[in-house]
Design a protein around this nucleic acid. Structure first.
Lengths: 216, 216
DNA sequence: GTCTATACGAAGATAGAC
DNA sequence: GTCTATCTTCGTATAGAC
């Protein structure tokens, strides 16, 4: 693969990452991608085989960015001894902002894209996501479990996934839109920097007492 | 509007509710809707003006079902004096299960649909959602604020919306899919009845201490 | 008021020249 | 590797029959 081939591939990935994030997968046509990437429709099929192949490639790249960032933040945190719950949550939440700081605009696209991918398409992509970020997830789960003695690992995992979901929605601004016209505008500004309240709320998830066992 | 016209209308609404919930809005073609509803393509345009009009109609009907259920549960709760945080969260979460119990399969469709609608399309539909369920939201916010003295109304609203988001993801099984192959299958069964752990986690959100003010 | 038939464009995908 | 041309299918929407 020549240098310009790689460049083409990357332009396609960049465009798709942004558009999928903004309009969703089903809502984005390949033609929209090729237009903003200034490439031919056929080149997508050459490089990625199909629209879904493109999605997978974008997803893998985006996850890789996030995973890398998460690993870095976690490493940093662990040099100062076993981190507490809130520190772990903070590191997790801050990843997005950190990505923006390090990668500029692309960081936002990555965050949006991941938010979308997490709730839009079929389960397949979510499972790809799960497989791709498995390593970091494992480290986080271990650290959280250690920080939360008395809470079974299964419970920690459940709450971890809840956190992932909340962060995804937050990253695509889905929560801010829920403010109702009459009641909410004044009591919740929305769109501000909600990082701190987000961290507080998510930490609360982990610190909640264990649910009573259900007979099932 | 004749009796069979209303029947056609309802068949369309039922089909759309289910399909939008399963495949998303952009991912569902009108042809798919008309096929499962056994009606002609034109009848959609006759009854709903456009695809988006159909979405709005489906959304309104679904919200109405949920709102009604929520009001009922909240009424019931308030007859026994001022409810606590956990009781409120439980009533909120249980609505989905209750809807299934009362409406059968349709309850599941409604839940899925609302989950989708909440995170898929543009902000417009989310705002429609917000407007439509505004009344119940107001009552819940009031009750929660009363149950949480010391937590500013804005903070309660933020956390309430976080709860709505988590429930939406949960209702479309988005969270269960995140279990990674190697690590999670054993420690979190997924797909079980997670109602109790969900209630515990969400209650934790509200009981978390307030975040320190951010300079902004 | 409701359905049949169909127009029209856009979508995903491919073959083959360069 | 990249682009042109084209195929097929599907989606939205309408005009007109009943």
């Amino acid at each position: 693969m020549g240098i310009d081939a790689a460049a083409t591939r990357n332009r396609i990935l960049d465009a798709a990452e942004r558009l999928f994030g903004e309009r969703g997968f089903a809502g984005t046509s390949l033609r929209a991608v090729t237009t903003t990437a200034r490439v031919n429709v056929a080149s997508i099929y050459y490089h990625f085989e199909s629209k879904e192949g493109l999605l997978r490639a974008v997803a893998r790249r985006a996850m890789a960015s996030v995973s890398e960032e998460r690993h870095r933040l976690l490493d940093e945190l662990c040099t100062r001894g076993d981190p507490g719950v809130e520190e772990l949550v903070r590191a997790f939440v801050v990843t997005g902002a950190d990505l923006v700081r390090r990668q500029g605009e692309r960081g936002e696209h990555v965050a949006r894209f991941i938010g979308r991918v997490l709730c839009e398409p079929g389960p397949e992509v979510r499972r790809l996501f799960a497989a791709e970020v498995g390593h970091v997830e494992g480290r986080y789960l271990d650290a959280l479990t250690k920080a939360l003695p008395g809470l079974p690992a299964g419970e920690v995992a459940f709450r971890y996934r809840t956190m992932v979901g909340v962060l995804a929605l937050h990253q695509m601004d889905a929560l801010a839109d829920l403010a109702p016209p009459g009641h909410g505008d004044d009591i919740w500004a929305g769109r501000g920097d909600d990082t701190e309240r987000l961290i507080a709320a998510l930490t609360g998830i982990f610190l909640a007492p264990q649910a009573p066992a259900v007979p099932s």
